[in-house]
Design a protein around this nucleic acid. Structure first.
Lengths: 109, 109
DNA sequence: TTACATTTGGACAAATTATGTCCCAAATGG
DNA sequence: CCATTTGGGACATAATTTGTCCAAATGTAA
């Protein structure tokens, strides 16, 4: 098996896990990336979504893969939206098809 | 084959196709669902996304399946987001897994 | 062409939502 | 205990969304 892609879950949970490994308090990480301690706490427990900028800074701070974390952020947003709307996950299949459709057929008059 | 689920693409395109079949001008449909003509035009050409309320009203007006159209709306939102971010569609798989994860593991302490 | 209706596009105000901070209470750990 | 970290709510401000208005473009028919 060549794949090691599996991750637990949300960006928040991942960030908390990483921070706990380093034994740093919220305060330290938060100030060093320029946000309020309280906000970072909320991000870690999925009470707020990080912005792309914040994800980039956190990735840099922890020296982890930025692109990967940004993907996690986007998939979080989709997942939370599905839960919030209580929608069916087969919507993702439809969306996938639409992406293909829009990529090809879209600039045709 | 039991499935007849295939649709062309976006909500906007579907709405325009339906309206053209009925030969009604934007003005008629728009006023009858209580929005500006210009806004409906923008929705039909994907320049704006309809709100859920508008989708419901349009479904009622055209006598088409409301739930189905609402699903189309949500998948549109996902698809446009992917295009806007120039992201990879495999993000949908990740999101799908997260939905499952959050549905089960989420209220555990 | 002219006249009339539809469609499109931009600019804008108003409404809604997201973002970040502050402050204090609760929990944790010495 | 005390000191620190973490959690949670209220809030101002920023950013985005939503809808309208108006005018220009396009279409249609005589």
């Amino acid at each position: 098996m060549a794949s090691s892609k599996k991750v637990i879950s949300t960006v928040g949970e991942q960030l908390r896990a990483i921070r706990e490994k380093t034994n740093l308090p919220l305060r330290e990480v938060a100030t060093s990336i320029g946000i309020d301690t309280s906000l970072l706490g909320k991000i870690e427990r999925n009470e707020r979504q990080a912005t792309k900028e914040q994800v980039k800074q956190l990735a840099a701070f922890y020296k982890i893969d930025e692109k990967k974390l940004l993907k996690e952020l986007l998939s979080d947003q989709f997942a939370f939206k599905i839960l919030e709307e209580d929608a069916d996950i087969d919507i993702f299949r439809v969306a996938e098809d639409k992406v293909e459709y829009l990529k090809t057929n879209h600039n045709a008059k």
